[in-house]
């Protein structure tokens, strides 16, 4: 190991961005974050915590402390499948799933996609909804794989074929009847449309 692999560990106060924590707590569902006692029930009930680099509890501690970069670079927020187990189990009734959503949104806004495929899926999903008012599953997943893990296309080709033969794969676009244009109109009148339509 060369000398350059060593880095001083103790964090000084300027490493912590308290505004980050406060801004997450200002979003709907995050207001109760202040009362977390770090009991770990959320992590222990989360079916995906074994795959995460930081457990949900740790992410909350890091968010409150203001370790913005570490939080937004973690794979935790992308691994969350929104099963709401944590929200229901939390003894302080903190809406942890909503906090995960808020962090996901913040990561997208600051263009940090530590787990490419999930962000790619979201991008393809949004595009489909904006264009047709519906989400076309097969087209979306194909686009996702194409942009991030093309090998998956090959691996799943046999499954795709079988599903298509069974009529469960919709390669044609499903459309809304006529008022598809209402959708972008609706969304634009809330505030700015999502800014990450361009490729990251």
């Amino acid at each position: 190991m060369s000398d350059s692999t060593f880095e001083a560990r103790p964090k000084q106060q300027h490493h912590f961005d308290l505004n980050f924590g406060k801004s997450i707590m200002a979003l709907p569902g995050g207001e109760d974050l202040y009362r977390c006692i770090q009991c770990g029930t959320c992590s222990s009930t989360c079916p995906l915590s074994a795959y995460m680099d930081h457990t949900p509890r740790r992410i909350i501690a890091m968010t409150r402390a203001g370790l913005k970069d570490d939080v937004l670079a973690s794979n935790t927020i992308w691994l969350c499948s929104s099963c709401y187990s944590c929200t229901v189990a939390c003894p302080k009734q903190i809406r942890i799933t909503d906090v995960m959503y808020s962090l996901k949104r913040r990561a997208i806004q600051t263009r940090r996609f530590s787990v490419g495929p999930v962000a790619a899926l979201a991008r393809a999903f949004i595009a489909s909804v904006l264009r047709t008012g519906r989400s076309n599953e097969s087209r979306i997943i194909v686009r996702t794989w194409l942009s991030t893990q093309p090998f998956e296309l090959v691996r799943q080709a046999w499954l795709g074929l079988r599903l298509w033969l069974k009529g469960r794969l919709s390669l044609r676009r499903h459309r809304m009847t006529g008022s598809a244009r209402d959708i972008p109109k609706l969304l634009r009148n809330l505030h700015e449309p999502p800014t990450f339509n361009r490729k990251a």
């Binding site: 949104r105 909804v129 519906r134 989400s135 209402d182 609706l186 969304l187 809330l190 505030h191």
Partner: peptide, 24 residues
């Protein structure tokens, strides 16, 4: 004339838009 509800994906991108889609 229903539209996509946004599912969990949209919620992770823009919450208010997700609610608007559902509300439509």
């Amino acid at each position: 004339d229903w539209n996509c509800c946004g599912a969990t994906t949209y919620m992770g991108v823009d919450e208010v838009q997700a609610f608007a889609l559902a509300a439509r």
